[in-house]
Structures are given as structure tokens and as C-alpha cells.
Computed example of a mutant assay.
Amino acid sequence: MNSNPISSFEDLMKIEYSNISGVVIIKDESLIYEKYFDGYTKDDVLHIASVTKSIISVLIGIAIDKGYIKNVEQKVLEFFPDYTVKRGEKTIQNITIKNLMTMTAPYKYKSEPYTKIYTSDDWMKATLDLLGGKGDIGEFKYSTVGTHILSGVLVSATGQSVIDFATESLFKPLKIKAPKNVIIQNKEEYLAFLKDKYVTGWIVDPKGINTAGWGLTLTARDMAKIGQLYLSDGVWNGNQILSSKWIKDSTKEKTRWGELSYGYLWWIVDDCYAALGDGGNVIFINPKKEMVVTIASRFMPRAKDRIELIRKHIMPLFE
């Protein structure tokens, strides 16, 4: 290994975290480290997988700030007046936005039926049909397909598409280049979006509703901006983009999954919090050290733990 600490760190990433495409670190509001690997540059977007969920949390917060949504205790079905509840279904009627955001809503499946949802012509109805059942409200059940309902809530509440609302309320103020809608029509296109080296856009369902649980592409710098927005209590260039109250609420423990804590679509890691996506995509925020670490990664099954990388190698090197 190289005797230079930074070079040694970069060697480690190339060897043990070979699917990392970019790392951006901000401390005290200044960019202190930025490095790209495997031919990627600062302008290349990647599929950020479940980090998308945390972006949806930002958008729900903005929608509440603007008065489009009253609060997280609103019942989900209030936003889908045309949806017909099956006879005898009671649980679904009591599920709130908060339940969806804290992964405490029950579903009628043991493993997530991705193919069933993504081959249907109405993803929202197919997902609502899976909501409820005999499970208990309040028990942690991580769901990617279920999160899609939150996109439907945003569309119903704001009267805009998710991408338009996100562009106007978040991307434009932060100078993030708004992605274009992308339609996937079969399993091959779905797998290509996950695995191809270069993908762009934000997946939409056949009704034009953007995915909430996955499917968004951003650069490592874009993710760092989201992290810095949270670290700065929702203020960007002197403008309050998101209320500090929402940031505090969404990054406090609301539920637990084993030893892990969860807020409103954010993972709580000791005195820090993070947006985590498959393959090792991360927005990691350390409020005490006023530090944001973002890692963009290509898809890889069972990718090595990024929190360990941040705790063991990045924090000691850059704090």
C-alpha cells in the first residue's frame, strides 16, 4: 500500500470497494475531497437506488411546509378517492403517510413482488392492492414497492408530477440538473437500468408517476448538496428550502429493525444519519463534525458495507 494516507485510502477503495464510481466529502460547508473512479467524472449520474427514498422524504417535507399535505398522520387513502377498498378490508383504511415513511405499514406479501408490480399497467393500484392485510400497523417491514404510494400522494396533493414538483422545489434551487422521465417496458430494460454503466433519468410508471423507492439518477455532487441542505437546517444560499423542523423529525428514530434505527426514510446511525441505496450508494451526514460524505456506486449484489468504510477510513482521515 502507498505510504501517502490519501493514496492508501484510494488504493483500498479500488481493491475492496471496486464498484465505487465517486466520493465527495464536504466539511464546514467546503468541498474537501472529490475523486472519481472507473472512468466516471463529476458530471456522470448513477442510479442511486434506495437513496431515492430519502429524496422522497425531502419532497414530502416540502409538500407539508407548503401546505399541500396537512401532516404525516393523514390517512393514505385520502389521496386516492377513486380507489375502491375491497370488502372486509379494514387495516388499509387506517394506514397513514407516517406508516409508509417509517416502514411500519403491513403488506400482503412475504417477499416483494417486483415483477408483478412492474409488469402491471397501473403500479399505483397494484401497490395499493397489496397494502394492509392481516399484519399489524406499527411493525417494521421494509418495502420498496410500497414506497411508490408516496409518489401518488405527492401527485394527488400538489397537482403536479413528482419530477415537476421536485424540479421546482428542490432541484432548481440547489442547481441540480433535473432528470428526464424514463419508461421501462420489460424485465430486460429494468435490469439494464440497474446494471448498465451509464444510465440517466427517473423511472416513471405507465401512468407517468415517478418511482419513490428506487429509479432516480444523480451525481455524487448532487447527493452531497442534499446532505449539505440537511446539515444546514434546510437553508440554501440564504433561502429556506425545507423546514428545520422536518429535518429534525425525519432524522430521529421512529422505529427499529434489529439494531438499526429508522426515521422518515432515513437510517439513523448512532449520532449520524444516512440515505442508503443498494450497491453502496450513500449520503452520510455527521452533524457534530459538520461533515457530509456521499458515495456513488455501480450496482453490485451484496456490496461491502459503506458505513464501515466511512467510520473506519473516511472519518479518521478527513475529520
Rank of each mutant, 00 (worst) to 15 (best):
D44P: 05
I209K: 03
T104H: 04
T96I: 08
F299W: 15
F9K: 05
I295N: 10
K27H: 08
L317V: 08
N94E: 14
S111D: 07
W267M: 10
G152T: 05
G138V: 09
I69Q: 10
Y273H: 12
I241N: 11
E29Q: 14
A178H: 00
K175R: 14
E29R: 13
F79K: 05
G215Y: 02
G258Y: 12
I20C: 11
G39W: 07
T255R: 07
I295G: 08
K110T: 08
E29W: 05
K289M: 11
K90T: 15
D65N: 15
K254I: 01
E189Q: 15
V162D: 01
V235E: 13
M300L: 15
K304V: 10
Y36D: 11
P206V: 00
Y273A: 02
V292C: 02
S156M: 04
I307P: 01
G159T: 04
A274Y: 08
K207N: 12
W202K: 09
I295M: 06
M291E: 03
G279R: 08
E73T: 11
A63K: 07
I55L: 07
K252H: 12
S8G: 09
E89N: 10
S151W: 06
G88H: 09
S232R: 14
T217N: 06
V182L: 12
E16W: 06
G61D: 06
K172S: 13
V162W: 03
R298W: 06
I62D: 10
E168M: 05
E189N: 04
E259M: 10
C272E: 14
R221N: 14
N186T: 03
F171Y: 14
G22N: 09
T127C: 03
Y190M: 12
L265R: 01
I25A: 03
S7C: 02
S169M: 14
S232D: 15
I176A: 02
I64V: 14
K252L: 09
N94V: 02
V58Y: 15
K116R: 12
G138L: 06
K175W: 00
S18Y: 14
F171D: 03
S161V: 02
G280E: 07
T84L: 13
T144V: 04
M103G: 07
T91K: 10
N286V: 00
V282A: 03
K252V: 02
T144F: 00
T217E: 00
I15W: 01
S7T: 09
F9A: 04
I15P: 00
L150K: 12
G67E: 05
I48V: 15
